[in-house]
Structures are given as structure tokens and as C-alpha cells.
């Protein structure tokens, strides 16, 4: 455990240094983090005004608050191993990282954390600007913030494990980017990114309830905004833990199978 912490510290330092080299690009990438919620917000505000100011309990300012928080959560939990894994296999860098005495996932986690450390202040500042610009109102309490922090942390771990597993698909196909596109599309609608799950058609919501996606993005937002009470939030945290256990077990299996295939193909 202590050894692992040492590994993380070392990796984090390297990733921080290397990402600071590209800070301008890194900040530019955050623009997409803003455009997406602004688009959703504009669409749903228009829907609300078409329906006389409200869509199933969401007024324009509720949408504003929701999408601002979703933007923050989405930034915190975002991963990008998926986009890189096929080229790691193709270019042989995966083989190199397999030679290291630490599991490659740790390197990705610290890379992710480093990037978040640099960009979080920017995204949070942007969230503040959007909140003011769109008149979002937050009614926060210490308890809610604490629950939110816990939910967001679990959401990050869950999403990281799940998306790392999706990335492993590249072991079986050289065209994994098509699958990644499919995954991201599903995520957009089933996680509450495009619209709060409260306003999507009922069948879609029922599908979302059966899948882990909503626990990765909309759940922490709903906790912070106080939709549902404390007991609902606690049950949600339980669901997150349950899904996390399932995904981590699956991940272990898929990783082992994938590695066996990778070494059997022998590149």
C-alpha cells in the first residue's frame, strides 16, 4: 500500500510536469466542457418556455443549476484511456508498460488526476460564470456538500473502472473507436448528461435505471441540488458501491482474458 502510494506520487509528478508543458492546449480542451452544458441548457430552457415555463418540475433556472453541476461532475469523472488504448497496442507502448512492476491502470489514474488538478480551477471558475450568467440558484448545506463529495468520488472511481474496461475492447478489435462512439452516445442519454433523467421519456428512464451510467454523472448532481432526500442519497451511494464491486470484478476478468489474448497473438 505504501509502495503503491510512492508509485502514485512519482507518476503524478511526471504527469504534472509533462501536462504543464501543454497547458494552453489543455485549457482549450475545456471549452468542450462548457459548450455541451450550454447547448443542453439552451435547448431545455427553450422547451421550458414552450411549455409555459416548466418541464416536469424543472424551470429554466433549475435546468441551469443542473447542467452547471453536471458539467463539474462530468469534468471530474471524465477519462480518456479509451481513445488511446488501441494506439498503445498498435505502437507497442502497452508491451513496454507491461514490463513495469506496477499495473498499467495506476499510470492512467495518476495521469487523469494530474490533468484534473490543473484544469479543475478553470472549470470551476467557468461553472461560476455560467451560474451567474444563466441565473442558477444553489441552496447548499454542509451535509449536501459532504454527500456530494462522496458521491462524486465514487462516481469517478466507478466511471474510471468502467471506461477502462471499455478501453480493453481494443484487445479484441482494431476498430474500437466505433464502439467507443457507441458507448459515449449511450452515456450521453442514459447518464443524464443531455437531459435530467426526470424529463426523458419513461422507457429511456427505465433502461437508465438498470444501468450504471446514471450513478456516474447525474446522481452526484442530484445529491448536491437536493432532489430526493438524504435517505435517497444514501441508497444511491449504496447503488454506486454495488455497481463498483460488479465492475471491478468484471474488469479483473476482462483484463486477464485480454492479456491472454494479447500475449497469445504475440506482438
Amino acid at each position: 500500500m505504501i509502495a503503491l502510494a510512492g508509485v502514485y506520487l512519482a507518476q503524478l509528478r511526471v504527469h504534472l510536469a509533462s501536462q504543464l508543458q501543454y497547458r494552453a492546449a489543455l485549457l482549450l480542451y475545456q471549452l468542450s466542457a462548457v459548450v455541451e452544458p450550454v447547448v443542453s441548457l439552451a435547448v431545455w430552457s427553450a422547451v421550458a418556455s414552450a411549455r409555459g415555463g416548466e418541464v416536469r418540475g424543472y424551470a429554466a433556472r433549475d435546468f441551469a443549476a443542473y447542467f452547471v453541476v453536471v458539467m463539474v461532475v462530468n469534468h471530474l469523472t471524465r477519462t480518456w484511456t479509451m481513445n488511446e488504448f488501441d494506439s498503445r497496442i498498435a505502437e507497442g507502448t502497452l508491451s513496454l508498460s507491461l514490463l513495469l512492476p506496477a499495473h498499467p491502470i495506476h499510470n492512467d489514474v495518476s495521469d487523469n488526476l494530474a490533468s484534473k488538478l490543473i484544469t479543475a480551477p478553470v472549470v470551476w471558475a467557468l461553472a461560476g460564470v455560467l451560474s451567474v450568467g444563466f441565473g442558477a440558484v444553489f441552496d447548499l448545506s454542509a451535509r449536501r456538500v459532504a454527500l456530494f463529495a462522496l458521491a462524486a468520488l465514487l462516481a469517478f472511481v466507478l466511471r474510471f473502472a468502467l471506461e477502462w474496461m471499455v478501453a480493453l475492447l481494443a484487445f479484441w478489435t482494431t476498430r474500437s473507436s466505433a464502439f467507443n462512439g457507441l458507448y459515449l452516445t449511450a452515456l450521453l442519454f442514459l447518464s443524464g448528461q443531455f437531459a435530467p433523467l426526470g424529463v426523458v421519456p419513461v422507457p429511456l428512464r427505465e433502461v437508465a435505471d438498470l444501468l450504471p451510467f446514471r450513478w456516474m454523472i447525474s446522481f452526484p448532481a442530484d445529491v448536491l441540488l437536493g432532489r430526493g432526500g438524504v435517505s435517497w442519497a444514501l441508497r444511491g451511494l449504496g447503488a454506486q458501491c454495488l455497481w463498483l464491486a460488479v465492475v471491478v470484478m468484471l474488469l479483473a476478468v476482462v483484463w486477464r482474458l485480454g492479456l491472454r489474448r494479447y500475449t497469445a497473438v504475440g506482438s
Partner: peptide, 30 residues
């Protein structure tokens, strides 16, 4: 061919799903 066609179709699905979700709440948007 298959992968790229799938990509384009996923893009289409994304667009249509967005429309579907919005139109399930209102028949006319702005």
C-alpha cells in the same frame, strides 16, 4: 467500411435520440 458506417450511424442515432427526447416534451421548439 463496417466500422465507419457504424460510426456515422451512431452519430445519426445520437442526433435523432436528442430530437426524440426533446420532442417528447414539446411539439415545437422555438
Amino acid at each position: 467500411f463496417v466500422a465507419q458506417l457504424a460510426r456515422s450511424l451512431v452519430g445519426l442515432a445520437l442526433g435523432l435520440a436528442g430530437l426524440g427526447v426533446v420532442l417528447s416534451n414539446t411539439p415545437v421548439l422555438a
